[in-house]
């Protein structure tokens, strides 16, 4: 089924309302009397997100028929991110924000491998549900746990 029809076919969920742009949908700006369309490229980041999304759509279209070239591209991105990580580590001036940067980079790499190499992007939704549920429970759980150990005795 056509992706656009799927997402913009009239049955917008709250989640999609919040996260996909079509006309006046990005930030749920209250409709005005003019009901004017948002001008083109007036999305956040000047249309960059829109373009990036389109590239991703082209890349990831099809049901698991992605070819080797496509895997090489993902691998190249992974390699480049790893290089950036190591480079970031060696630059003393960037050290002060090393931890958040590394976390973000590793999340990106994680997501790329899971979504594309492990085919979660194309596979049955149930697999995503299972894995994401485990990740969410795990992350929530261990965050609470780390908070507890970091703030042991808070308020005493």
């Amino acid at each position: 089924m056509d992706w656009w029809a799927l997402n913009y076919g009239g049955n917008m969920s709250l989640l999609k309302d919040l996260f996909f742009y079509q006309g006046n949908k990005w930030w749920k700006i209250p409709e005005t009397t003019e009901l004017s369309e948002n001008p083109k490229n007036e999305h956040p980041f000047g249309g960059f997100l829109e373009k990036a999304k389109n590239i991703l759509l082209i890349l990831s279209s099809g049901k698991g028929h992605a070819g080797p070239v496509y895997y090489w591209i993902i691998a190249a991105i992974l390699g480049i991110i790893t290089l950036i990580e190591v480079w970031w580590f060696t630059v003393p001036e960037l050290r002060y924000m090393l931890a958040p940067a590394m976390l973000i980079f590793s999340i990106i790499k994680f997501a790329l491998v899971v979504a594309f190499f492990m085919h979660l992007r194309f596979d049955h939704k149930m697999f995503s549900t299972i894995f994401i549920t485990c990740m969410v429970v795990g992350i929530l759980f261990f965050s609470v746990f780390l908070l507890l150990s970091a703030f042991h005795g808070l308020g005493t």
Partner: peptide
Amino acid sequence: GFLGWFVWSHHMFTVGLGPAA
């Protein structure tokens, strides 16, 4: 099943995790 994950410290109320926890 879900809430059961976020209650474990009630076994440790006397450990001294602090009033907040």
